[in-house]
């Protein structure tokens, strides 16, 4: 790569803002600082929120700068997908963080998960990608938009799942002492899972319409479709298990994390490792 392309400074700044939000969120749950007025009065949560919003805005600028530079949106390469997901996960988690104060300490789990994407994107070259003809289709917006909401809801669920699991340890209990009981956390986590199932289903429908237009078939069990279907199925199985059996909170958390892991592999693995992923994708 020659020189620094236009989107990189904004990307770095956005990731720095997320990093700051992560550190302050972690600071807020450490029992040693519980007596510090800044933490005691929950002022640190406002700072976390501010850094999240700033990060989202900076990543929006990164996406815009790249869009202007290469002529199309973040649809194609892994670099684009990661930046785009960092932006959308940030914006939706910020919204949940704002509206649902009870889940705020779970940011110490959610933000590091986002940092997996953040670290990953830093290892990639921001090379310009080719925009396939089939991507001019308007259903792409619907499909991708729904997919972003779906993944963000799963991520919020993972934060709560992590809380339930970490609370099996004494340290975890101290960290998340300001959060509601496991019962309430579990309740909220599975609400996110229910909504995720709705958005996942809508995403698959929109994707099928797009695939019909783009490739002349709505479903062909290609690698990405199979992986996406398995994610949907895992989610449906998880919901049926959760609705029908007494599941300990830690097991409930593991189920949610398993579903997220499948979704993560679908989003960030299959399209880039399979030679038979969606035509035109790679």
């Amino acid at each position: 790569m020659n020189g620094i392309v236009s989107e990189l400074p904004w990307l770095w700044a956005g990731l720095a803002a997320y990093f700051a939000a992560t550190i302050i969120a972690m600071w807020g749950v450490v029992p040693r600082f519980a007596g510090v007025p800044f933490v005691k009065t929950k002022q640190h949560e406002r700072v976390v929120m501010t850094f999240l919003v700033v990060g989202v805005l900076l990543l929006a600028l990164a996406i815009t700068a790249r869009w202007i530079r290469i002529g199309h949106g973040p649809w194609i390469s892994l670099f684009e997908l990661l930046v785009s997901q960092l932006w959308s996960l940030g914006i939706i988690f910020a919204l949940l963080y704002w509206r649902l104060p009870g889940l705020r300490p779970s940011a110490v789990i959610v933000l590091p998960v986002m940092w997996i994407l953040g670290s990953w994107v830093l290892t990639l070259e921001p090379t310009a990608s080719h925009f396939p003809a089939t991507y001019y289709n308007s259903w792409k917006w619907v499909h991708v938009g729904l997919g972003k909401v779906f993944l963000a809801l799963l991520l919020a669920g993972v934060g709560l799942a992590g809380v339930m699991i970490l609370r099996r340890t004494q340290r975890g209990q101290r960290w998340f002492s300001s959060m509601p009981s496991d019962v309430v956390v579990d309740h909220l986590a599975w609400r996110f899972m229910m909504l995720a199932l709705v958005f996942d289903s809508l995403m698959l429908i929109a994707g099928a319409v797009w695939a019909q237009d783009a490739w002349g078939r709505y479903w062909a069990w290609d690698s990405l479709e199979t992986s996406a279907f398995l994610t949907w199925l895992f989610l449906a199985i998880g919901l049926h298990v959760r609705l029908s059996y007494r599941v300990p909170a830690w097991a409930s958390g593991l189920i949610i994390i398993g579903i997220f892991a499948m979704a993560f592999a679908t989003y960030f693995g299959t399209p880039y490792i399979s030679p038979s992923a969606h035509k035109g994708m790679v």
Binding site: Q173, V184, V247, A249
Partner: peptide, 20 residues
Amino acid sequence: PWMEGAAASTPKTQGGSSGA
């Protein structure tokens, strides 16, 4: 409500089973 009991529940309540 989304955070039912969130304001009131004590954090000490661990390991509650759910579902069923």
